[in-house]
Design a protein around this nucleic acid. Sequence first.
RNA 1: GACCCGGUAGCUCAGCCGGUAGAGCAUUUGACUUUUAAUCAAAGGGUCGCGGGUUCGAGCCCCGCCCGGGUCACCA
Length: 482
Amino acid sequence: MSLEDELFEQRLGRVREMEAQGLLPYGRRFGFTHTIPNILQEYGTKTAEELSPQTRVKIAGRVMTIRRMGKAGFAHIMQSGERLQVYVKKDALPETDYQLFASLDLGDIVGVEGYLFRTKTGELSVHVEKLEFLSKILLAMPEKWHGLEDVETRYRQRYLDLIANPDVHKVFVTRAKIVKSLRTTLDALGFVEVETPMMQPLYGGAAAKPFVTHHNTLDLDLYLRIAPELYLKRLVVGGLERVYEINRNFRNEGISTRHNPEFTMLEFYQAYADYNDLMDLTEKLLARVAMEVTGGTTVEYEGHKLDFGSIRRLTMREAVREQGGNGDLAGPALVEEFEAKVERGLIQPTIIYDFPVEVSPLSKNKPCDPAFVERFEVFAAGMEIGNAYTELNDPQEQRRRFDSQISRREKGDEEAHRMDEDFLRALCYAMPPTGGEGIGIDRLVMLLTGSRSIRDVILFPLLRPEGEIGLADRLRRLDQKA
RNA sequence: GACCCGGUAGCUCAGCCGGUAGAGCAUUUGACUUUUAAUCAAAGGGUCGCGGGUUCGAGCCCCGCCCGGGUCACCA
């Protein structure tokens, strides 16, 4: 018999024993008085004397370690990635509760009631007087010391990763804080959050290959959006003058440490503004989010100290010249030169502005030089994390840009924009002069959490499906045996 | 898509020149009423990713495939 089957049998046996005693192996609501992080924060620095008179607590969580010593024992209970020790003494709690403790498995979920104290070695602990069983683990927990290191298992069974690796828990809590910080800043500036279609009859707003899906009733092929841009700009036409969306984009392209087929993007549009205003706003957003998440504007990333408190600005031509490239180039050739000579070296947060018009079909021309557009990208750690421009709001010019995209497409550029007449019609109703920007949330989270792969900031990154697991069959067999 | 690395017990990993598959944690049994990677004693646990081949003999060598990681390409 394999070890896993053996574990199943042992633990299902314990489930049956509990049921026989009238206990619930899968319990019901548990009214706790404190969370473990609460207790650690409130009492973590109190001395033994300061803990009297007794503070009674009722807590719940997952059993992470057990040290049994005959008629007493210790365990650590984990909640929200933090652990608190509990001390269980045979003559301090009811017989049945002690029996329960004696048959606990690592990974079980329990509720505990007792009072706070400090052990001989000074660790804050709960002196247990009541133990309630809440949920039974059937499979084995990852190793207590090394945690779960197998990358594939970490991604496929993220719950195990979260249980075994507290740092992973922290990354995703930080991710939530980052998104909240961006929302708070934008909300305070009067931006309205909206949701626009994920499924679009025409895709646009970026150069990328789309995913295709189909609606049965309408018998209609739809694209998962590659960007929300064209819908958000329709909203600006409609008078939502400050508008943003934080949501998923889907691009049917390669997977790497910086690319996942679905990723989260913040896009925001501000009427009556241009790309200079957005540069200022970008600095403010980034400095603030870094401050709120890490307590400062500098963050460590791959051995570099990135300073989000001072963001350099230079034109694409200046950047190319600075690296010894040919700054006299124009059009796509300039972009190629930039990507070859500059991009990867942009470690410190940097704004690169003034892009060639050919690669920017939705941006407004620079008045003094129509070969360039009012567009910038933000780079850090060699990664593009944002893209912004003064929006093209002249419908006739937009039509010409679409036309030239179409001829590029006819020459084989699969990622060139398609004609979007509905969008053109919206522009024909007059869009105010507007600045718009997209910020890649996943990459920003990477920078602010020190994660080297985008998969480490996405809870369930895309993987090929694994083979048969065979678990249902085993459980079925054991059920029949019982 | 190309190249490099990896897949051995539930987990973390060893496995020499091709010669009977190993350790720690976890599990089971026993001892232990302030331990903390608890300790002590004993036991059980393997489709060596999958399929072929070479060989007297393959975890190890060869071929194909699957899964994952990395680099590059792609991603304006």
